[in-house]
């Protein structure tokens, strides 16, 4: 008679469906399929799909590669810590190190150009949270994640760490400058 008693009809699985239930199940099923295929559709036609290109790495290996790019393309230094500002050419590989408690170096990219951004952590898990665009990527130690990015607006972006990484977590903020396209000064 009720949900806390055994079903009164022994053959409950033969009990016919009510129309309200049948209709709702059909509608819900169609909606679920739309949501499922939406993800696949976006991979074919959408512009925001997170790359899954990943390599195993170590902090020494990654730091050496990042240092080479910094040595080659540093245009100036900023902050009290003399953080290099690196402006690599469009299409190139750029590196950002996440470590306790900063992102290193500062990057200077150009609007509308594409870069291969390599991310890893030197120690704990960190979070790459690009603000105010609000793009969030997990940074896992031991894994080099290559994300292809195309900034679509110029301006000053911050990279906020949004994975808890210890007592100095709230001081871990990096920066990416995006310079306007030539002839498109904003």
């Amino acid at each position: 008679m009720s949900a806390i008693l055994p079903p009164a009809e022994r053959l409950w699985w033969k009990h016919p469906l009510d129309r309200v239930e049948g209709t709702w199940i059909a509608i819900a099923f169609v909606w679920c399929m739309i949501m499922f295929f939406m993800m696949i559709y976006w991979h074919m036609y959408g512009k925001q799909n997170l790359s899954t290109e990943t390599y195993k790495t170590t902090s020494e290996q990654f730091a050496a590669k990042a240092q080479a790019v910094v040595d080659k393309y540093t245009v100036r230094v900023e902050t009290d810590f003399q953080t290099p500002v690196v402006a690599p050419p469009p299409g190139s590989d750029v590196y950002m190190i996440a470590r306790l408690w900063n992102f290193w170096p500062i990057l200077e990219l150009q609007q509308g150009q594409t870069y291969r951004l390599h991310l890893t952590s030197m120690d704990y898990n960190h979070g790459f949270s690009l603000q105010p665009a609000n793009i969030n990527i997990q940074v896992v130690p031991g894994y080099e994640h290559v994300v292809t990015v195309t900034p679509n607006q110029s301006g000053t972006y911050s990279v906020v760490c949004n994975e808890f990484c210890g007592i100095g977590h709230h001081t871990m903020v990096g920066r990416i400058y995006v310079k306007a396209e030539a002839g498109n000064v904003q």
Binding site: K47, L130, T148, T150
Partner: peptide, 9 residues
């Protein structure tokens, strides 16, 4: 909202 963000691939 997602479609307005940086291109990622």
């Amino acid at each position: 909202y997602l479609s307005t963000l940086w291109g990622l691939s």
